[in-house]
């Protein structure tokens, strides 16, 4: 694979990742969120595959398969099942801040991401390193989604977005972390999502819907 192709593919997948992230902030439909998340998962897998091909690392290719399965298929499926039983509230109706404000926040957070990535960018001028701010920005967007969306599943989506961001940074800066850690991390994420999924359905039984605003019984 030539250097140019590599750079272009890398930039393409990075761009796709960021686009999906912005769209997640923009859109309100849970279904769309899940689909965007799946796309993002595939983009991430693609990014890893590109890196693997470029560095001729079989390990990274295996990881790419793992990522594709987990983030592109399994997790979106889990989320889709979580929303499937709840046709009445498949939309995030009133986020805590309106879409315009959220998008303004997105631009601010992107700037912040570039600002804080300076030390990483100083590591070298490779294409991979240059894309690191995208990962940072995704993580920050994930946080934004987490703290402004009312629906339980939205929080899951925010969490996964955050996780994707971190994974992106990990792959771009270091070609991932040691495999044992990578496996542990993936397992952890999967388990967390499963736990939250179980809790979501319990919340729905207890509260009638999955609106987190009702959950303020524990307070001082």
């Amino acid at each position: 694979m030539s250097e140019t192709t590599y750079t272009q593919l890398l930039q393409l997948s990075a761009g796709l990742l960021l686009l999906c992230a912005v769209l997640i902030v923009w859109r309100r439909s849970l279904g769309a969120h899940i689909r965007l998340l799946a796309v993002q998962g595939w983009a991430l897998a693609g990014l890893v595959a590109v890196l693997g091909l470029h560095e001729h690392s079989a390990e990274l290719l295996w990881v790419s398969v793992l990522v594709a399965t987990l983030k592109g298929v399994v997790l979106p499926a889990v989320l889709a099942r979580a929303t499937a039983s709840d046709r009445t509230r498949a939309r995030e109706e009133t986020p805590l801040i309106n879409t315009t404000a959220a998008l303004l926040a997105v631009s601010f957070l992107t700037m912040l991401a570039y600002l804080v990535s300076r030390p990483v960018l100083a590591l070298g001028s490779t294409a991979a390193v240059a894309a690191v701010p995208v990962g940072m920005a995704m993580a920050l967007f994930g946080f934004l989604v987490l703290s402004t969306r009312r629906h339980a599943v939205s929080q899951l989506i925010g969490f996964l977005l955050l996780d994707n961001g971190i994974a992106t940074v990990a792959f771009l800066t270091a070609g991932g972390v040691p495999l044992v850690v990578e496996l542990g991390v993936s397992l952890d994420v999967l388990l967390v999502v499963l736990i939250l999924r179980v809790l979501t359905s319990r919340i729905r039984t207890e509260y009638g819907d999955a609106d987190l605003d009702d959950m303020t019984e524990l307070r001082d």
């Binding site: 402004t148 987190l212 019984e217 307070r219 001082d220």
Partner: peptide, 8 residues
């Protein structure tokens, strides 16, 4: 009020 129960 600091801990008003809202996860957000």
């Amino acid at each position: 009020r600091l801990q008003n129960g809202s996860i957000h």
